[in-house]
Structures are given as C-alpha cells and as structure tokens.
Amino acid sequence: MKDIQSTGKIKALFLLMRPSQWVKNIILFLPLFFAQEMGDTDRLRNVAILFASFCLLTSGVYIFNDLMDADEDRLHPVKQFRPIASRKVTPTTALILMFLLYGASAACFNLIQTSGNQIWLSSGGYILLNLAYTLFLKQVQIIDTMIVACGFIIRLEAGAVAGDIELSHWLIIMTFILSLFLAFAKRRDDLRNFMETGQISRKNITGYTIDYLNVILSFLSSIIAVTYILYTLSPEVTSRSSEYLYVTVPFVLAGIMRYMQIILVEKSNCNPTDILLKDRTLQLTVVGWFIVFALLIY
C-alpha cells in the first residue's frame, strides 16, 4: 500500500512539472534550424543544454502559476485535476520542488558555452515576465495574450544567443503572431466553458465575447498566412536557402484551417499542446511541413 502511495505522489509531482508543455521549448531550436546550422555540433550542443534548462525553468514557472491559481483551477472542468488544485500535492512540497527546479536550471545554464550574460538575462527576464503575468497582468485583457507571446519571443532570443545566430525579423514576427493566435484561442475556450457552466475560471474573460474572439482569430490567422507567404517569397530568404520555399505554404494553410476547425466546429479543448499531441491531422501537417522545408533548405 505504501509503495502504491509513493508511486502516486511521484506521479503527481511529475505531472505538476507539466512535462507535456516542454514541447513548447522546441522553439529554442528554430533559429538554428532556419539558419541552416543544425549540423554544427557545438551550436547544437549549446541549444540542447538550453532546451533542458528551459524545461526545468518553465516547470518552475508553471508550479508558481498553479500555486497562485489553485482556487480558480478547482472551478475548471479540466484544470481541477491538476496536482495542487486536486490537493494531491501540498503547497509546501510544490514550493520546494519549484526552487529545486530553478537551481537545476541555473546549473544547466552554466554548461552553455557562450560569451556575455545574454542567456542569464533571457532566463531572468522570462521568470520576471511570468511572475508579473501570474500576479496581475493575466487579469488585463489583451495585454495578457501579449505577455504570453513575449514569453515565446524570449525563448526564441535565448535560442539564437545559445546558437550564436542572428535572429531573423521574419522569425520574430511569425512567432509573435502565432503565439497571439494560440493565446486568444485559449481565451475563447475559457469563455465557452464559462457560457456552458457559469463558472469563471479566468476573471478577465467577461470582457470578451465569442463574436469578438472569432474576429480576432480570423484576423490573426490571415496575418499568419500572409506573413508566411511573404517570407517564402522574400529575396533575402530565397537567396540564402531555396527559391522553392513557397511549396510549403499549403502545409501552413492546412494547419491553420485544421486548428480553426477544432476551435470553431469541434469545440474541443483549445490547449495548443494537447491538440498537437493528440490530433493526427495536425501532426501530419507539421511533420509534412518540416520534412519538405528541411529538404529544401538543407
């Protein structure tokens, strides 16, 4: 019986770290991938260590968020099962784990071979941004989604620094807009849950309407498509990679349309990580884009 209880506690602590969210840190490799430097073992090593560091760091951030939002999470049909909200992990245990993760992340950062303190500034900025977000900025409509998008840009910048890559303005723009799109999709999911159950799992959703969020999502998805098309046709890009990048456009369009179908038609959970890990159509679209894009630029 004790062994079963111990196993359950270990599982709860592991789930508290939200390992499924680590997939978001793959964005750290994008500067290296788009710069066609994935074959450079030294740069790849640095970014791989950074990936491990950010997985630990973001897990610590998620724990702090869960500690602050435990009461609200208990009102959510999905979030109520999180370890702290369901009382499987005590706040004290969660705090200890959070600081251990921060310490382990800092130890990993020391293994990255880069000049200057940009990596430390990026990680510190990421923590401060998320602390501000969790404590008060997440209650400010529109600004909250901007903060989420900025978090991805910080990851992108850190990946560029670790890989000693000059970050492309195209990559920054596309990442920011795509992050906004995904953040607003989650707000729509929260609002839909409120309309169906009457329970407010996020206080700032009362300032939104479904029609407004549908317009925002349509607007952002259009910008993503146009920006990507312009990127594939840009002389700056085609001159150093391939003039046939435009053949990857159908994959991007298909991915956007499938995501919109999940949100608007199937009305499924709009957590982008869950969707990516479960939806076969979206997975095939992403893998297809990656294979064709990689063949063209490498």
Results as ranks from 00 to 15, higher is better:
residue 49 I to T: 04
residue 67 L to H: 12
residue 61 V to C: 14
residue 62 Y to M: 09
residue 44 L to T: 13
residue 69 D to I: 03
residue 47 V to N: 02
residue 63 I to S: 07
residue 46 N to A: 06
residue 72 E to W: 05
residue 60 G to F: 08
residue 64 F to N: 12
residue 55 C to Y: 01
residue 46 N to D: 09
residue 62 Y to H: 12
residue 54 F to K: 01
residue 55 C to F: 03
residue 70 A to Y: 06
residue 42 D to P: 02
residue 56 L to A: 15
residue 40 D to G: 05
residue 64 F to W: 11
residue 72 E to M: 07
residue 48 A to E: 07
residue 44 L to G: 06
residue 71 D to W: 04
residue 56 L to S: 11
residue 50 L to R: 00
residue 68 M to N: 14
residue 66 D to M: 05
residue 70 A to Q: 09
residue 58 T to D: 11
residue 43 R to P: 05
residue 66 D to A: 10
residue 50 L to W: 00
residue 65 N to Y: 05
residue 49 I to P: 01
residue 68 M to C: 11
residue 64 F to S: 11
residue 51 F to A: 07
residue 43 R to G: 10
residue 72 E to L: 13
residue 50 L to Q: 02
residue 64 F to Q: 13
residue 55 C to Q: 00
residue 57 L to G: 15
residue 45 R to Q: 12
residue 64 F to K: 12
residue 47 V to W: 01
residue 47 V to C: 03
residue 59 S to Y: 04
residue 62 Y to Q: 10
residue 49 I to M: 04
residue 42 D to L: 14
residue 66 D to G: 08
residue 47 V to Q: 00
residue 60 G to Y: 08
residue 53 S to F: 04
residue 51 F to E: 06
residue 72 E to P: 03
residue 41 T to V: 14
residue 57 L to R: 05
residue 59 S to G: 13
residue 60 G to V: 06
residue 42 D to R: 13
residue 45 R to Y: 10
residue 61 V to P: 11
residue 47 V to L: 02
residue 57 L to H: 10
residue 45 R to A: 12
residue 64 F to A: 14
residue 60 G to Q: 09
residue 40 D to A: 11
residue 68 M to T: 14
residue 61 V to M: 14
residue 70 A to G: 04
residue 58 T to K: 01
residue 68 M to S: 13
residue 65 N to Q: 09
residue 55 C to I: 02
residue 64 F to C: 11
residue 65 N to A: 10
residue 64 F to V: 12
residue 49 I to V: 10
residue 45 R to E: 13
residue 47 V to Y: 00
residue 44 L to D: 01
residue 59 S to W: 00
residue 57 L to E: 05
residue 44 L to W: 04
residue 52 A to C: 15
residue 69 D to F: 00
residue 65 N to C: 10
residue 63 I to P: 06
residue 50 L to H: 01
residue 48 A to D: 06
residue 61 V to Y: 09
residue 59 S to K: 01
residue 71 D to F: 07
residue 66 D to W: 04
residue 45 R to T: 12
residue 66 D to S: 09
residue 72 E to C: 06
residue 43 R to I: 05
residue 72 E to G: 02
residue 55 C to K: 01
residue 51 F to R: 03
residue 42 D to C: 08
residue 69 D to Y: 03
residue 72 E to F: 08
residue 68 M to L: 15
residue 64 F to I: 14
residue 71 D to H: 13
residue 51 F to Q: 07
residue 54 F to A: 11
residue 40 D to K: 10
residue 56 L to M: 15
residue 41 T to P: 15
residue 66 D to Y: 05
residue 71 D to K: 15
residue 69 D to K: 02
residue 67 L to P: 13
residue 67 L to D: 09
residue 46 N to V: 02
residue 41 T to A: 14
residue 50 L to C: 02
